[in-house]
Design a protein around this nucleic acid. Structure first.
Lengths: 152, 152
DNA sequence: GCGAAATGTTTGACACGCCAACAATTTAAA
DNA sequence: TTTAAATTGTTGGCGTGTCAAACATTTCGC
């Protein structure tokens, strides 16, 4: 077995580096993910926000940001954009006058469902190299990696 | 089976999205990778460059950039830094007066080997949640994903 | 020999993550 | 109850990384 690719480059030191391989593989799937989202005029990051709000209506911006593990300052421009697209709305919370409760509009719900179908189809369309059951196994292993984040 | 995490958030739409899970997992391993590199005053991107030059001495900057799938303009500052650390040197190519041939210095070879041990140890130290043989399986599957990049 | 392509390089735009502030508000402590 | 500490949304700055375009020098194809 060789450590060369088709260009004759020796990748020995990177061959068994999960950090490197995960990055390259993530870039590949990001393209798939991105292309599906772009068809609906949106980015993968914005889709993940919609996906969270869809199943968790009423969440605050901070709650969404911690759910997705992004900085809450990044949420401002994101919700601004989704609100300008009329798929998300900020409602003033009665309990806490500091925060907003986030909801999808009717248009937003339909938009998110269509987006979800498109993204899922885009990924499934790219799974031809996977053997039976491998996808589920991969998702499970990735979950374990994510869960082991802090001092597993 | 629930789609909630420990905070009671419903992740249904993201639960089986490889694009999302790969990104999260990559972030986790990037931290491991980054920490190991930081101990030697370097970044994961610079390590990958060293790893390529280590096993492929004499490569041009463009060859390294295509091998790592990064823009060749990004190579300039990277090699500048590695040269200032005296681990890499640009030698003028006799055949092609446009390009440089990249080589590791003796110091650079030792540096890269120590770095490689540290990065590998950092990853192995984080593999406790993996079952026997799972790591090889994962690396193989990631390779297939990367190889399927263009029109799989 | 002449036009096309490659190499290293610079530059500018753009996005993104990270961190530090800040005002308004809520919570906890004394 | 008064006061200190924490939270929320928001802005701004800084560093990074990506991407595209341009450029001079040099090489390659015809």
């Amino acid at each position: 077995m060789s450590n060369d690719d088709q260009n004759g480059i020796d990748y020995s030191m990177l061959q068994s580096r999960l950090g490197y391989k995960l990055r390259r593989a993530q870039l590949v799937y990001f393209d798939v993910f991105f292309e599906a989202c772009a068809q609906e005029g949106i980015t993968p990051g914005l889709f993940s926000i919609l996906a969270i709000i869809y199943h968790n209506p009423g969440l605050t911006q901070s709650a969404v940001s911690t759910a997705l593990d992004v900085d809450r300052s990044a949420m401002v421009a994101a919700i601004d954009k989704l609100e300008s697209m009329e798929v998300v709305e900020r409602r003033k919370s009665k309990n806490d006058r500091r925060s907003y409760a986030l909801y999808l509009t009717d248009k937003g719900k339909e938009f998110t469902e269509r987006l979800n179908r498109k993204v899922a189809a885009g990924e499934d369309n790219f799974d031809s190299f996977m053997k039976e059951g491998e996808r589920e196994w991969l998702l499970d292993l990735l979950d374990r990696i994510i869960a082991a984040r802090k001092g597993g």
